[in-house]
């Protein structure tokens, strides 16, 4: 029986969908059977990050309302055969699904897959309750920025109220140079404030925009910092102990000298 993990944040635009897509791709690349579920009903996006938007035929609400089985609705990934996506509906309103129906679907998926990752919509209303209903664990995505940290704290309270015991933190869009100058919250500050376990640190990386333009998860590209960061997260989810990297630029005299001569 697999694990269902909801990826949530409260605030919009912090990188929930990017995180879901990349952790999923990372886990699949490590040989796990993974189902990604886009639980953001009405605003379908996860298919874009996976480059699968042209293959969507049936969606989540079709499955819930019995027009298609989940086996018929899932789309197999182009690159990784053990990775599938259940896309969200584009036009339906989110009240067409109940938390109970979601839980039932997720329970079925858990029989078949090692990991079921649920991409939660922004906000804390019905869509949030639906996405959380079937989850065993949660990943809270936060940016090093006051409003994101505040919303994350609210969401952590709501997840605890839903009796989700394992809640882990991913800090996304960290700018190490700003942290170094004392102009951005550091990882320790955020972890101290929110008081939950850290799962990963993802640095700001132009590669994220490029990979979403292309529809290819950056986790499959180990030459990019963010790609490495997401792979580390996937490995930690599988129980590996990977040390945390703060993605600080190496700007010592020797590395600058090396750069000058084009060695590194």
């Amino acid at each position: 029986m697999g694990k269902a993990i909801v990826v949530t944040s409260g605030k919009g635009g912090v990188g929930k969908t990017t995180t879901t897509a990349n952790i999923g791709a990372g886990l699949a690349a490590l040989g796990q059977k993974v189902a990604l579920v886009d639980a953001d009903i009405g605003l379908r996006n996860l298919d874009l990050f996976m480059g699968l938007e042209n293959r969507v035929v049936y969606h989540l609400v079709d499955v819930i309302e019995g027009r298609a089985t989940w086996k018929k609705a899932i789309i197999r990934d182009k690159r990784l055969e053990n990775l599938v996506l259940l896309p969200s509906a584009q036009v339906r309103d989110k009240d067409s699904v109940t938390p109970r129906q979601m839980k039932q679907l997720v329970d079925e998926l858990k029989q078949e897959f090692d990991f079921v990752l649920l991409d939660c919509p922004a906000g804390i209303e019905r869509g949030f309750k639906n996405a959380v209903a079937g989850a065993d664990q949660a990943i809270v995505v936060v940016n090093p920025e006051v409003s994101s940290v505040r919303d994350a704290d609210r969401v952590i309270g709501l997840l605890e109220a839903e009796e989700i015991k394992c809640i882990q933190l991913v800090v996304n869009r960290l700018k190490p140079s700003m942290v170094k100058r004392g102009e951005m919250l550091a990882i320790k500050d955020i972890v101290d404030l929110l008081a939950i376990d850290l799962l990963g640190i993802v640095p700001e990386d132009e590669g994220i925009v490029i990979s979403s333009n292309r529809g290819e998860p950056i986790a499959l590209n180990q030459t990019m910092k963010a790609g490495q960061a997401f792979c580390n997260i996937s490995r930690r989810l599988m129980g590996d102990e990977i040390p945390f990297v703060d993605w600080q630029e190496d700007d010592s005299f020797f590395s600058r000298l090396k750069k000058l001569f084009g060695i590194s």
Binding site: V149, R150, V179, G182, E183
Partner: peptide, 10 residues
């Protein structure tokens, strides 16, 4: 740095 302010406010 503004980080200290961010932390104190939070």
């Amino acid at each position: 740095g503004s980080k200290t302010q961010a932390k104190e406010r939070l």
